[in-house]
């Protein structure tokens, strides 16, 4: 059985059709990469999967662990195990990082009918995971993402992912704005979460990230549709030849 099954997905944003029939199946433990030029619908796909308002699904279906994902609120999707790592993580003034993580963690426990976490044990767990991402305690005390550099924000996304342990992580342009060292830290964090039952969907413009996180499959998205799929070698081909061969094929 697939973890995620997208069938003939059409979606509009601001009245414009952006996704024009996407089919994609992700099995447990698989890492898929979606590559494509700007405006191909990559970010729209991540928002439609995570339940952002302002995107309307006009046709098709998305099934996650046998459930209709599109029928759920954004927080339900998260608690079912779908995680979106944002391309531009949002600043939350006045809410300390640790508080934010605890609220998210407890929301998940509540959702599955479990008692809330022990505060001390939770603190210890988060500190360990933060340390692995070279994040200081001070960063956890600060309001979420406020005054963080681009690299710090991305590390913070991966920390949230590590704490919430999602079944499916959708990583939207996670490599953008990262220097080589930060890219290494972030990729190591992501790779540490790979497991036979957790899956990932990497959304990226460049092949660079895939040197660090090796995908099982690569798909090319252009004009709102997957134009071609292949193994990781496809990414290298794209790096050499660009997207020009795909962009011309308007629907």
């Amino acid at each position: 059985m697939f973890l995620l099954q997208i069938e003939n997905l059409h979606a509009t944003a601001g009245g414009q059709e952006v996704l024009r029939g996407i089919d994609l199946e992700i099995g447990p433990g698989e890492v898929h990469a979606i590559m494509g030029p700007n405006g191909s619908g990559k970010s729209t796909l991540s928002y439609v999967l995570s339940g952002r308002e302002g995107y309307e699904v006009t046709e098709g279906s998305v099934t996650f662990q046998g459930k209709d994902l599109l029928d759920m609120e954004a927080n339900e999707r998260a608690n079912e195990g779908v995680f979106l790592a944002f391309q531009y993580p949002v600043e939350i003034p006045g809410v300390a990082g640790m508080t934010f993580l605890k609220e998210a963690f407890n929301a998940k426990l509540r959702y599955s009918g479990e008692p809330e976490a022990n505060a001390m044990e939770f603190l210890k767990m988060v500190r360990e995971k933060a340390k692995a991402l070279s994040m200081s305690d001070e960063m956890l005390r600060r309001p979420v993402n406020v005054g963080f550099s681009g690299g710090e924000k991305k590390r913070n996304e991966i920390l949230q992912m590590a704490v919430l342990e999602p079944m499916l992580s959708v990583l939207d342009e996670t490599d953008s704005g990262l220097d080589i060292d930060a890219l290494k830290v972030v990729s190591d964090g992501i790779n540490a979460l790979r497991s036979p039952d957790r899956s990932m969907l990497l959304i990226t413009h460049y092949q660079r990230l895939l040197n660090h996180i090796e995908p099982d499959y690569v798909h090319v998205l252009a004009n709102g549709r997957i134009q071609c799929s292949g193994s990781k070698e496809l990414a290298l081909e794209l790096e050499a030849n660009g997207y020009s061969g795909f962009e011309g094929e308007a629907a």
Partner: peptide, 23 residues
């Protein structure tokens, strides 16, 4: 901001309360 909190599993109402409380 509300969406960001929701994508972390936090119910919309709780997200609203957290943001207003911080404010």
């Amino acid at each position: 901001q509300l969406f960001y909190l929701q994508t972390r599993g936090i119910e919309r109402n709780l997200a609203r309360r957290l943001l207003v409380s911080a404010y």
